[in-house]
Amino acid sequence: MAPNELTQELAQELLGMSPGEIKLYEGQKGVHIFKVFEKRPKSILPFEEVKRALTKKVQVEKARELCAMKMADVAYRAKKEGDLQKYAQKEGLKVYVQGPLSRTDLLQGIGKSPRVLEAAFALSPGEISSPIEEGGKVFVVQLIEKIPSKIASFEEVKKSIKERVLQLKAMEKAKQVSKEILNLWKEGKDASQLLNKYGLKMETLRPISRFEAALSLSKEIGLLMPSNPVPSEALELRGGYLAVRLSKVEEAEQLNLKEAKEALESFFKAQLLQSFLNKKMEEEKVKFNPKLLQQYGIKLEGAKSDSTPLR
């Protein structure tokens, strides 16, 4: 139903329903059926739950930003030297040397990276790209040679076609098996036999909050309840699928509002500062004081003086 159909009157009716109760509602676009599975008392998220999730998010964002800064410097210095591979090896950075590629190929050692390929095809021979972020990683690309396109013979593409077909079949099979596992769990059955059949294993995760589960996995997983412990679909990951089931719910401590407010303010201040630095880095017209940035938990690698230009 459309968001504007959830009127105040309807909201009050839904709040007044009991677990297991079913109600029909005739809206602008048809009749809707509502069923309440569970009612939970209104509560405030525990401080440790919010703190842990925010800390993890800030750490990931900070690591990503520092990586972007480092790779921006790598791109700048490699462009000055004119040879990305030579400079990267000198700095101890990992280098992936690729053979001739098409726009749809998988990159050796990296996998499917459409943004990296798009950037590579936009370069001229010998040109080095700016940093490219994809899949939580940052890449810098140098184009060695451009080969005119042609219609490849079957023998030339047979191997890549076979690999692609096998990869697609494997993903489809993984999706099917994940769905079978979820269906067994939904029916309250044991999936051990199916897991053993395909050589899969089931692991128990450490207790995580709903907030953290929604951030790191999916919103649906963050909303799982004892009465509905299995999501509608498996979680698609890079190269496979993850079947998840809620095992139990533990009581959490109540949140300290003052501490939560401070944690949120600290998080958003860090985000704002990082955005500001990114903008200035792109403009390449400013110098930053490393000692001052360190007070905010940001360290500039290679800084030797109080004013080091960032490129």
Rank of each mutant, 00 (worst) to 15 (best):
A174C: 07
V244P: 00
E21A: 15
P100M: 07
E81H: 06
L217V: 01
K150E: 14
A303D: 06
E134S: 04
E203L: 12
A213N: 07
K285P: 00
E187N: 09
Q12H: 13
K70L: 12
F276V: 12
F121R: 10
E251D: 09
K35Q: 14
K29T: 11
V36E: 05
G302D: 04
Q98I: 07
P231W: 01
Q28K: 15
K299M: 08
E284W: 01
E13C: 08
S232Q: 14
K39T: 12
L215M: 10
Y87S: 10
A191R: 07
K304Y: 03
G239H: 00
K175R: 09
Q89W: 02
P100L: 10
G20S: 02
V244E: 03
S160V: 12
P131C: 12
D306E: 12
F121H: 08
S227I: 08
A174P: 03
M225E: 14
Y25R: 14
V74E: 03
Q271E: 15
Y96Q: 05
L14Q: 10
V36H: 08
G30T: 02
K175I: 00
E81M: 10
T7G: 02
E91D: 02
P125Q: 04
E265S: 11
K62E: 03
M281H: 04
A53K: 03
I161Y: 15
V177C: 08
N278Y: 10
